[in-house]
Design a protein around this nucleic acid. Sequence first.
RNA 1: GCCGUGGUGGCGGAGUGGUCAAUCGCAUCUGACUGUAAAUCAGACGUCUUCGGGCUACGCAGGUUCAAAUCCUGCCCACGGCACCA
Length: 397
Amino acid sequence: MQITTDKATIERVLDRGMLDTVLPSRDFLISELSSGRRLRIYIGFDPTGTALHLGHAQNLMFLEDLRKLGHEVIILFGDFTARIGDPDKSSARQQLTKEQVLEYASGWVNQVRPLLNFDDTENPPVIQYNSEWLEKLSFADVIQLASHFTVQQMIERDMFQKRIQSGAPVYVHEFMYPLMQGYDSVAMDVDIELCATDQLFNALAGRTLQKKINNKEKHVIALRLVSNPVTGELMSKSRGSGVLLDLSANDMYGALMAQPDEMTEIFFTSCTRMPLDQKETIMDMGPRDAKMFIAKEIVGIFHGKENAEHAEQSFIETFRKGGVPDEMPEIKIDAKKTLGEILVEQKHIPSKSEWKRLIDGGAVSIHDGEKISDASFVPTESCVIKIGKRMFIKILG
RNA sequence: GCCGUGGUGGCGGAGUGGUCAAUCGCAUCUGACUGUAAAUCAGACGUCUUCGGGCUACGCAGGUUCAAAUCCUGCCCACGGCACCA
């Protein structure tokens, strides 16, 4: 595998617009990347939920860029660290079971796949799990690791300061988290850690340890978090504002379109690899069309061009023209049961009360037909039922 | 070990005997407006219902009362502070 030493190419990768911080320095990093030496670069994710989102995708795409330069890249799933939980701003995170974490991780592997070229036989990306080494550490090892840091260094961390000031608890095990993540760097003996800015503290712990234990300089590349430039809001699953990577083509397209307009440009930069000089042309298409363009582009990365095209057509058909999507859940007519009962049974609606609320709110209608205002409505012939803005159910007679 | 505070709906957080299925904020859902946007406005937001009302819920278990999230007893859990530290 040829290592790219051309500085202009390297700078093009670094300067796409996601970079936030480089430690110890950008110049040093460039000189390392262009030295012709094959570097080992890693990024870590803790599988704490079912799906990655577009913010993670940004980081992985950046990692792929570095891989294409010829360097060895590792995607580390923190199956061990996920169980302890990275300290949160306000509280200690809940600890997960091993089974739970492994289940999440297996899903994440699939979501990562489209973003890097795993078919590259010369320089394929590598996936690792940190339980492999963290599980083996003895108490003595841990104490040895801990001796490299002071309590002052730990509580200096912003989130701990805030908690201490507000009288909220800071648990001892939370200090272990940076140690663990730091030890990952040592165990894999990496040259560079790629992360988002929220991971800087942990990444720096790895820098410290790598220097003290392996006597090696570890570079940290921190990418900015994908956030709304107007409100500053992060993509977040809990607020339902994220675009999750396990969505179907149609849903992902829809989720992208539902993002505020001001996100379009950021998505262009962070989550596509279209040349930067096309940005202006695309943004000039107008807010809606630019967003559609980007949405199709991103869906294409995960589901292929053809499916992306499909998703766009389906979107236009369904939402702009008021049609119905080409695929939807189907249910069979049962003369003994009301529509509401069937939908609750099949988990399309959580409860009968909810069904009644939807009816009262005027959310349920027969496609191309009138609203259903009777909660005990029993379908008698094949039709399509629309519930809310985007739930369509095909009724089969 | 001692002292103190507190455990309420997805979250934050009111409520301190009745009008409490529980103020309010966030999140969510629906409607209007639209570009499935966003912003805004309106409504909903335990569950079952023959739409009268049931039932289950304010850490757990008992009790007092016509009536308890609210009072009493016991228990469990959490946090803060103090003390102890060969």
